[in-house]
Simulated scan of single mutants.
Amino acid sequence: MKKLHEIQIIGQLKNIEGWDYKNGYLYKSYKFKNFKETFSVMTRIAFECEAQNHHPEWENVYNSLTIKLNTHDVGGITQNDFDLAIAIESIVNSQS
């Protein structure tokens, strides 16, 4: 796993809608209809995280979910973070 440079990160962010880069993390916040829908999406994301062996930092309050990604082993962003962000987007978009 190679740590990506900021220029690479900014370039790849163009491929995933709504994600930002701040303080060493890729992050995005979501709003859902209610807690049940939010928790359902979180569960689906958790299974994907296990499959990829890559786990986010996240925070949930009622119908909101904020996800932060980085690769702790390299102290920054890697392709694994982008792969997981793309998978998360797919999960969230399939919920709609």
Rank of each mutant, 00 (worst) to 15 (best):
W58L: 07
F82H: 02
D73G: 10
F39K: 08
A46F: 11
K14E: 14
N93F: 02
K14P: 07
P56R: 02
I67P: 00
K68F: 10
L13P: 05
F82W: 00
P56G: 03
Q95T: 05
N23A: 10
E48M: 15
V61G: 01
N53Q: 02
L26S: 04
F32A: 03
H72N: 05
S96F: 14
N63W: 05
A87N: 08
K3G: 00
K33E: 15
L13W: 03
I67K: 02
Y30P: 04
G24M: 00
R44N: 13
P56Y: 01
Y62S: 10
S90P: 00
I88A: 03
T78A: 03
S96H: 13
D81I: 00
E17R: 10
I16A: 00
N15H: 12
I86R: 06
A85E: 06
N80T: 12
S40W: 14
L65H: 02
K31Q: 11
I77S: 04
V61L: 12
G18K: 03
N70G: 01
V61K: 12
N53P: 00
N70Y: 02
T71F: 07
F32W: 05
E6G: 07
V92T: 03
C49I: 05
I10S: 07
F39N: 10
T71H: 07
H55G: 12
N34M: 09
E37C: 11
H5F: 14
N34L: 08
E17F: 09
S40A: 10
L26C: 05
T38I: 15
I45L: 11
I88K: 05
T71K: 04
E17V: 07
L69Y: 07
I9K: 10
N23V: 07
E37M: 12
G76V: 06
I67Y: 03
K33N: 13
K3V: 01
S96C: 13
S64H: 14
H5P: 09
N80H: 14
E89C: 04
Q8M: 06
K28M: 05
N93M: 06
I91T: 00
I7Q: 07
E89N: 10
H55P: 08
Q12A: 11
I88D: 00
S40V: 14
N60K: 06
G24L: 01
Y62F: 13
K2Q: 13
L26I: 12
S94D: 07
A46Q: 12
K2M: 13
Q8S: 11
E59G: 11
V92H: 02
Q95F: 10
E48L: 15
N15K: 11
I9H: 08
E59R: 12
N70A: 05
A85H: 05
T78Q: 02
Y25G: 08
D20N: 13
F82R: 00
G76M: 06
M42H: 04
G24T: 01
K28F: 01
H5E: 15
Y30E: 09
N23Q: 11
K28I: 04
Y25P: 04
E6A: 11
I77R: 04
E37I: 12
K14C: 08
R44K: 14
Q52T: 11
Y25N: 13
Y25F: 14
K2H: 10
M1N: 07
N63L: 06
A46M: 11
L69W: 03
W58D: 02
E89M: 04
